[in-house]
């Protein structure tokens, strides 16, 4: 079923989920859509509803109020679906790891497939991360 694989990897729709970021990672994500990088070339779209998502892109340090919401959103996503942690905050906690109101890292709450470190990561790094996530997405489709 190579065309199913092709279909899945040629049109990844990304849902952007901020768990209390400083908004810098989010701006870098938007950068990927600008003429300079133009990820729509590869079929990547930013979608508004979690039900349409193939990849969940998480930014931010996961404050305690987000934990419950992130779990619900993760369960609402249609399978197969990959999770990408974007930014040092969501990968490892960064300087919020000892904070009283965060529950870092994100992987404590939901399983993360790909980590993109950086504060914020460059758009090139983000695109590389999404490409890695595509491989994971296809594995998940096979194991479903």
């Amino acid at each position: 079923m190579s065309f199913l694989k092709k279909a899945l990897t040629k049109s990844p729709w990304v849902f952007h989920l901020s768990t209390g970021s400083c908004n810098n990672c989010d701006i870098e994500i938007i950068d990927c859509l600008t003429p300079r990088f133009d990820v729509e070339r590869f079929g990547v779209m930013l979608v508004g509803s979690i039900r349409h998502a193939d990849i969940i892109l998480i930014t931010g340090s996961m404050n305690k109020k987000s934990v419950k919401r992130v779990k619900v959103l993760y369960e609402q996503a249609p399978r197969p679906c990959a999770v990408v942690a974007c930014g040092t905050c969501s990968c490892g906690g960064h300087f919020f790891r000892d904070s009283y109101n965060t529950d870092t890292p994100v992987s404590k709450t939901i399983p993360v497939d790909v980590y993109i470190p950086g504060c914020p990561p460059k758009p090139e790094a983000l695109i590389a991360g999404i490409v890695k996530a595509l491989g994971k997405l296809d594995e998940k489709r096979k194991n479903r």
């Binding site: 065309f3 279909a7 899945l8 049109s11 079929g43 193939d54 249609p78 489709r141």
Partner: peptide, 9 residues
């Protein structure tokens, strides 16, 4: 491709 992908989800 978008349509085919959605069929598989």
């Amino acid at each position: 491709v978008d349509f085919l992908k959605l069929l598989g989800k």
